[in-house]
């Protein structure tokens, strides 16, 4: 009843434009983190949340950060996204500071909680960034409708967040993050609060979206299997003070499907990273 009122041109989504199947995109350095760290002044003195962080992330890369709870994984995303300032070292996004990149709207954030405005419908939540950017045109709304269709929410556009399941709200959050075509997706345990089945569905969706344009994704999770399944590279963090202990390349074939989860190479990588985290 709700779904039929929007016809869709299949490949007209803007971030599809540079979609050229089979072409290997040249990669260049996009996020350059050098010796970065952040300390918080807490009640019991200074707390070093992250220190001596070095990482390079290239364009079109899907990189995950795994680590034990409280190791500062989320803090790294906030540092890169310009929501927090490093107290040591430096971070460059394509030659800009994180804050400059944030102001240039290069980041699409997806948080563990969907962070919906309860008084807005799904489509109006997706339109929030466009409104902030004074770009809430009819064309944008059209694109937002198609985005919602792409994340599997055709027919749910005018429902309110309370009428949607947790997984559906997270789909809206992904559509919202893509709606203004940011250069980089910063995802902070986006599927952490979902059940296993919903999580698998969203893995497939995320990879499908990512295959379309290979936008750079930085994905924080404590789920090692999830990180291996999705990523080109996995950065393993130590407990607090968090630093990157090891970097693992995931050379599993793409596109990845549910069959990938039973590949020996996949299982071996998961085991190896888990072992690294436990010790």
């Amino acid at each position: 009843m709700l779904g039929a009122r929007h016809s869709v041109g299949a490949s007209s989504l803007a971030f599809d434009e540079d979609r050229v199947p089979g072409v290997v995109r040249p990669q260049r350095l996009l996020i350059d983190i050098k010796d970065a760290g952040i300390t918080f002044d807490g009640k019991g003195g200074r707390v070093v949340a992250v220190e001596k962080l070095d990482a390079q992330i290239r364009t079109h890369e899907f990189v995950s950060i795994v680590g034990p709870s409280g190791c500062g994984k989320s803090t790294i995303l906030r540092l890169i996204g310009g929501l927090a300032r490093p107290t040591a070292g430096r971070i460059e996004i394509d030659g800009e500071t994180p804050n400059e990149a944030r102001l240039a709207r290069r980041f699409g954030f997806v948080f563990q909680q969907s962070v919906m405005l309860p008084w807005r419908t799904a489509i109006d939540n997706v339109m929030l960034p466009s409104e902030v950017m004074a770009e809430a045109t009819l064309k944008r709304r059209d694109e937002a409708m198609r985005l919602l269709e792409r994340v599997g929410l055709k027919g749910y556009e005018t429902l309110y967040p309370r009428q949607l399941s947790g997984g559906m709200r997270q789909r809206v959050a992904i559509a919202r993050a893509l709606s203004f075509r940011p250069q980089i997706m910063l995802m902070d345990e986006p599927f952490g609060a979902l059940d296993a089945l919903t999580r698998q569905k969203l893995h497939a969706l995320l990879l499908e979206l990512w295959e379309a344009d290979r936008k750079t994704v930085l994905f924080v999770t404590h789920d090692v299997a999830e990180a291996v399944f999705l990523s080109d590279r996995v950065l393993i963090m130590s407990p607090r003070p968090g630093r990157i202990e090891e970097e693992v390349s995931v050379d599993l074939p793409r596109p990845r499907t549910d069959a990938t989860r039973s590949l020996p190479g996949y299982l071996a990588l998961v085991d190896r990273i888990l072992a690294r985290l436990i010790h």
Binding site: R102, L117, P129, V132, M133, L186
Partner: peptide, 17 residues
């Protein structure tokens, strides 16, 4: 909630917005 405010800041919303 602070995460809503952060979401707004992440897309460079100003104080009035």
């Amino acid at each position: 909630e602070s995460d809503v405010i952060e979401l707004m800041e992440s897309v460079a919303a100003n104080k009035a917005q």
